[in-house]
């Protein structure tokens, strides 16, 4: 576990925070944080995007959350783990925008809009700790990409998924909506695309490549000019965007459209 802050509660924002805590308690009491369903993703083969691994690799079967983690679920986590309250969190584990959307949507209004929206503005450390707190883990990048490649239910044309993603990328950022409202894929997982980006456990593995351990330095420019040299399919621009996004992140970063979902090994299921 991460070192608990244990800060004194004497700051001027205290009143506001007490209000937040009250709301949070109310939320848990009223059963907003229901148990999250998981979906068994069958094992299968998958061709990673990075060159050097152009042959497909096998992804073992694993459990994945049906939906991204919601505000309501994350509120319950924060109550149980006060070191993850915005006022306690250490800057090395989450930047200043951590959960900043709660101020507007939850504390300052009497109606709790967005409790079923995916939680955003969370750092990798927070997401990682959340998953551990519920006996799960963050999915690996390969797991996420493999699950995300599944086509929407009822379709058998790759183009449909590509169009869905393109449309999302190429429209101006719109507000969030409840989880489970965009599309369900053939594994039964909701909204892999169309709402938010999602953290993966090994998001910082992507600027590595096979050559680096032998001769050359790791090209920092993997997602700049030299990108096309290293990708397995240079025209797969929707994937490029996702990998570029991950490479722009640091562990403490929080972003308005970045959330997460958890995964779990099959053998750890009892």
């Amino acid at each position: 576990m991460l070192r608990n802050g244990g800060k004194k509660n004497d700051d001027p924002m205290k009143q506001k925070k007490d209000l937040l805590v009250m709301w949070l308690l109310l939320l848990t009491a009223s059963g907003f944080s229901q148990k999250t369903d998981m979906v068994l993703i069958p094992d299968g083969n998958f061709v990673p995007f990075i060159k050097g691994q152009t042959t497909s690799i096998k992804v073992q079967s694993f459990w994945m959350d049906e939906n991204p983690v919601t505000n309501a679920e994350f509120i319950a986590f924060v109550i149980a783990n006060p070191q993850w309250k915005p006022e306690n969190v250490k800057s090395i584990f989450a930047d200043k925008d951590y959960l900043s959307h709660w101020k507007d949507t939850i504390v300052n209004s009497n109606t709790i809009s967005g409790e079923k929206f995916p939680v955003v503005n969370v750092s990798w450390f927070a997401a990682n700790d959340y998953c551990k707190s519920v006996g799960k883990r963050l999915p690996t990048m390969y797991e996420w990409e493999y699950a995300g490649a599944s086509l929407p239910e009822g379709s058998n044309d790759n183009k449909i998924l590509n169009e869905l993603i393109t449309r999302w990328y190429s429209r101006q950022n719109t507000g969030l909506s409840n989880v489970g409202s965009i599309y369900r894929n053939q594994f039964g997982v909701w909204d892999m695309y169309g709402q938010i980006w999602e953290w993966v456990y090994d998001f910082n593995s992507i600027s590595s490549n096979e050559d680096s351990r032998n001769k050359e330095e790791i090209p920092e420019g993997f997602f700049c000019g030299s990108a096309a040299l290293n990708a397995s399919d240079a025209s797969d621009y929707v994937t490029f965007i996702r990998y570029a996004f991950r490479s722009s992140l640091k562990g403490e970063y929080t972003v308005r459209k970045l959330g997460f979902r958890c995964a779990k090994n099959v053998e750890s299921e009892d």
Binding site: N128, Y201, N204, S205, I206, S208, I218, K250, G251
Partner: peptide
């Protein structure tokens, strides 16, 4: 993994 994230040392 945690330390590598903080140090920004990518690995695979």
């Amino acid at each position: 993994k945690e330390l590598s994230v903080i140090l920004q040392i990518s690995y695979n």
